[in-house]
Write a protein that binds this DNA or RNA. Structure first.
Lengths: 211, 211
DNA sequence: AATAGATATTACTTGTTAGTATATGACAAT
DNA sequence: ATTGTCATATACTAACAAGTAATATCTATT
């Protein structure tokens, strides 16, 4: 089985290499976008941060807007996956919503999620904007529908599912701006506490809601 | 009293004129920043939108960064004013907090408030960033201290006043991104409903919290 | 009138960066 | 061996936008 390893890479290995390089470029880019903003980030600098030159970036990612677009898609996919994962769970809707929200928040605290939140639509061309709006709408719809299920099964109390979705999303997107992993509590714990605030509200409850 | 009006303006009138022009430039700028983003907005275009030229902008506002800075200060002042106004009211802390939050949200739905929320720190120089961080911290501190008062007088239930302030701020900053005055409910109503969501939480309450 | 100050313009310089044309070396398949 | 393809570099173009003279004009006071 364990033969002398060939110094030649198979087609599959090369394809994996390529993917890894592409992802490394995306990671370098997203970090720079997050620290400097999209317009203030030059592809020269992104490339240099990995010890290569700009045409290499173009080789793997086409053009600057596409670099951003792929980063955003990647982040949005993580958010959507969180939704489908929560959807597959058992329990009342409020519980499924909670577990979705906690993962949603953690994604927003990570590099690609941060980029999704921090990048305003205007940074993109009309075309790409439509694509992204579609994905964002999907995520919003998932959240809203979990809320609606909760209204139906009685585990969630609210007047307007759509507006509640905006309320929750806002509160849980914001860590993309303020959360600093290197100080304070770890991401999961912070995420959980934020969601608890939203679940309970800030007005005192006379008695526990689960009799 | 009502004499033939002099065609000559007094010093005071001229000073008011100057202020008005400066403000008009700031409004034009802030609207462009909000629609295109800071880096994608050229002062040539800002000036052109009022039928003047770029050096005019420099005459009134110095340089591009200062244009942004003045807009942000303006918006932040509105937020701080909302806090001091709420502070002066009577009633339990939860009530004062509510009324602060509602105004806070409405500011974030208006041009200058939008700009405060949508402009990420990185757009500015280290210097200006410090100034703004200071102002933002003030607002955050106001919110946190209203919450702490509520913990003390029993009108607010929460474990961590600081984290609750982030939760509320996030939810109520977000309308700067999604709210569209031209569709849906008017600003005050939307603001009130958002705050209600946060006050009540999404878990059902067995009975009203005000016995 | 004449001068000073405020307001605005035209025309320029300069720096930055997205994007491209072209060259080159390495490897793989034939 | 030869040919083609992938990965990368060097070196360039083109465009845009910030900021700066130098200058003209209007207004108000002496």
């Amino acid at each position: 089985m364990a033969q002398t390893p060939s110094p030649f890479r198979t087609a599959e290995q090369r394809s994996r290499d390529r993917q890894a390089k592409k992802l490394a470029l995306m990671e370098a880019a997203v970090r720079m976008f997050n620290t400097r903003g999209f317009h203030a980030s030059s592809l020269d600098d992104v490339a240099a941060s990995l010890g290569v030159t700009k045409p290499t970036v173009y080789h793997y990612l086409g053009n600057k807007e596409n670099v951003l677009l792929e980063c955003l898609r990647f982040g949005l996919k993580q958010l959507l996956d969180a939704a489908t994962h929560a959807r597959a769970q058992t329990g009342v809707a409020a519980e499924r919503l909670r577990s979705f929200l906690i993962v949603y928040t953690q994604v927003n605290m990570s590099d690609f999620g941060r980029c999704v939140i921090r990048t305003p639509d205007e940074a993109l061309s009309e075309e790409s904007r439509e694509v992204l709006r579609g994905l964002k709408r999907q995520i919003h719809a998932e959240m809203r529908s979990l809320i609606a299920e909760g209204q139906a099964d009685g585990s969630i109390a609210c007047e307007d599912a759509n507006l509640l979705a905006f309320t929750l999303a806002g509160a849980l997107n914001w860590p993309a701006r303020w959360y600093d992993e290197s100080r304070g509590h770890p991401p999961e714990e912070t995420a959980r506490r934020l969601v608890d605030n939203l679940a309970a509200g800030f007005l005192p409850r006379s008695r526990p809601s689960n009799p």
